[in-house]
Every structure is written in structure tokens, then in C-alpha cells.
Design a protein around this nucleic acid. Structure first.
Lengths: 197, 197
DNA sequence: GTCTATAGCCAGATAGAC
DNA sequence: GTCTATCTGGCTATAGAC
């Protein structure tokens, strides 16, 4: 593993746990097992190191969103695939959702820059598809955006609010993971069941 | 409005927007329209000021959780009441959920201290009640904790991930509020519909 | 490329006048 | 109580030896 990779991985851990403002360059250096000066040698400054980490985090999740937004399958299949692939991935990167949401709130301007480029996932096609399947009598009449909000909510929230959820519902780490395994299929089942004709 | 109240309100605004680590005492003082030294005169230090704000934020939401956890109504009625009252409140305090979730992640140890006291909302009774209504044939067999996770997810997530959700689904502030109004009733309808016998 | 030492700045906190 | 001025520590960033 190159020094740059060691720094990058350490930075990911620290930034995801503390956020941009709370992270300390010294802590990242310690985590990487190298000297603080190397961070600046490799990544110039804190902001650029952060942007590298954030962009990487975002790019790991974006393809799955893009898939549900643009693939040619039926709406039901898309929902099934999304919940399954998203949870499968994020169960091994449990701090990613909260990290992204947090930094979006703390620094919306910066983040919007690459939510507004032409590569951002665009829901228009999927919304049109939902409207078409409603017209075809496959799906009950629903607000397509509400449907998408439901899917994202049920899938992402348990991870984004992980500590709160564990504390409130009094569930252990093991039980949490077990529940998320179940949700890979149960979320799609419930939603599809409630909207199918 | 007393000076203390001016400071407290300013602190709430800044802390909720920037988080503990990102907030600056100077910014809070400017927001309050008073001098930085007054912050320390009134609240001793940044940590204590933050704790006052956080505890206040948490105590505004806790009663609604307690209500669903302990009141004597049916499970269906509880779900209906919770989604309605939670959204009604939070629509006027839209940064509260994200604020609480963020600081829980950044500083779990501190927050757990008052999630672990005897006053914390305890879900045990509600879980028992759900199991009873399942045994009575009112509710289909489901994992009670998954059911609660569903309710919280659908209700809280849109606010917690507000900026992300607005960006992804391309919805304006007005449209967002309109959607949340609909969700006051639609969430409960969908969930109840999917679990009732 | 990797380190030590340090510059320079900024934010939290305090002293002290009024 | 409210202010101005200042101290102090810690953090980002850099200079410079090896």
C-alpha cells in the first residue's frame, strides 16, 4: 500500500467519524502511521484531502442510484434491486450515508457543485416510467416522488441514524446487522405490496 | 427578550447549521447582536452552551416519542398520531432531526449519557403491545422493531436528509413542504395497510 | 519521500474598565 | 451586565534537514 493510500484510508476513517470541521490533521496522520507533514505533501491541504474522500464516498453510492434511475427494468424490479444492492454495500460502509448527509448540510454550496453537473443521477426518467405504469394499471395512483422518498427513507435511514436507532430501539450491533439483512428483501416487498394493483 | 435568551436562540441557529465543531463563538455572538464575552459570562464555555441547546432540542422531540411508546391507545392509532404530530412539529424546526443525528454520531459518548437515564423513552411496552396485537390477530406477524424502524424511517428521513433529498428528487422548498403535509397521513395509511389482517 | 521544528493564524477564554 | 483588549493553546501549513 502506497503512502498516499494509507493517508487516504486514514482520512476516510477520521472524516467519516468526525466530519470535516471536527477532524484533525494530526489524528489522520496518527491513524495512517505517518507524519503530519506528509498529508500536506501528498494532498496540499485539508480541504483538498477532504474533497478527495468525499468525492470517493459519493462516487461509490452514485452508480446504484443511477441504476435505479436509468435502467430498463420494471419499477418493481428496480426497487428490489436497489434496496438489495444498497444495503449489501452500505452494511460494510455503515458511516457513509451519515457522512454524506452531514457534509451536505454543513456545506451545501460545495456539495451542490457536483450534484449539479451533467453526471448527476437524474430521476426524471424513472418518474415518467412510474407514471406510465400507473396509466397502464400496474401501479396504483401514487405521487412518484413520494414513492421514491419512501424507498430511500426505508433503505437509508437506519444507517444514517444508526446510533440513534440502536439507542432508541435498544438493539445490539449484531441484531442491527440481522435486521438490515432482512430489510434487503422486506422493504421492497412491503412497498410493492402497497402500490401494486 | 433577555440577553440569555438572545444568546440561546442565536446558538441554536448556528449550532444546528454548523454542528458543534463547525460553530464559532464569534458567529453566535454576531447572530445574537452582542459581544463574544457575554457568551462566556452567561454560559461559561462553548461545551455548556452547546449542551443547553442540544438538550433543549432533544427535549422537544422526546415527548412525542414517549407518547407512542407508552400511551394506552391501539398500535394503529399510535402510528397515526405520531406521524402527524412529529411532522407538524418538525416542519417548523426542519434542522432539528439532522442536528440530533449528526451530534449523536460525532459524540456518541456524551449523548448516550441522557439516553441512558431512567427518563429515556423506552420501547419495551410498545413492542409487547405489538406482539399482543399480533397474537390477537389484529396485526400480521411482523418483527416489532422492524415496524418501528419503518415508521421512524418514513417520518424522519425526509427531514434528516432534506438537502440531499431535495437535490436528488429535484424538489423545491414549497414542493417539499407540500409533500410533508401529505405524509402526515399517507405514511400511517401505507404502513397500517401493509400490516393489518 | 519522509522527517523535525516552527511559523502564523485563529478561536476559545479571561482580565479588567465602565 | 456589557464592553474592549488581550492571553493562551491548538491547529493548519510550511521551511528545511536528511
Amino acid at each position: 500500500m502506497t503512502t498516499e493510500e494509507k493517508i487516504f484510508n486514514a482520512a476516510r476513517i477520521v472524516f467519516q467519524k468526525k466530519g470535516f470541521a471536527g477532524a484533525r490533521m494530526q489524528e489522520i496522520a496518527d491513524e495512517a502511521g505517518i507524519n503530519k507533514a506528509m498529508l500536506h505533501y501528498c494532498f496540499k491541504n485539508k480541504q483538498l484531502l477532504f474533497e478527495a474522500v468525499f468525492m470517493n464516498a459519493f462516487s461509490q453510492l452514485a452508480p446504484q442510484i443511477k441504476e435505479i434511475f436509468t435502467s430498463g427494468e420494471s419499477v418493481f424490479d428496480k426497487i428490489k434491486k436497489f434496496t438489495h444492492s444498497y444495503i449489501s454495500f452500505v452494511i460494510h460502509n455503515p458511516y457513509l450515508p451519515q457522512f454524506i448527509i452531514q457534509e451536505m448540510n454543513n456545506n451545501p454550496a460545495f456539495v451542490m457543485s457536483f450534484l449539479n453537473n451533467e453526471n448527476r443521477p437524474n430521476p426524471t426518467l424513472l418518474i415518467t416510467q412510474i407514471e406510465k405504469e400507473i396509466a397502464d394499471g400496474i401501479i396504483k395512483p401514487v405521487n412518484p416522488k413520494q414513492l421514491l422518498m419512501d424507498v430511500f427513507s426505508m433503505t437509508v435511514f437506519p444507517f444514517a441514524a444508526q446510533i440513534l436507532a440502536k439507542g432508541m430501539l435498544q438493539i445490539s450491533d449484531a441484531e442491527f446487522n440481522q435486521m438490515m439483512e432482512e430489510r434487503k428483501t422486506s422493504i421492497a416487498e412491503q412497498i410493492i405490496n402497497s402500490i401494486k394493483r
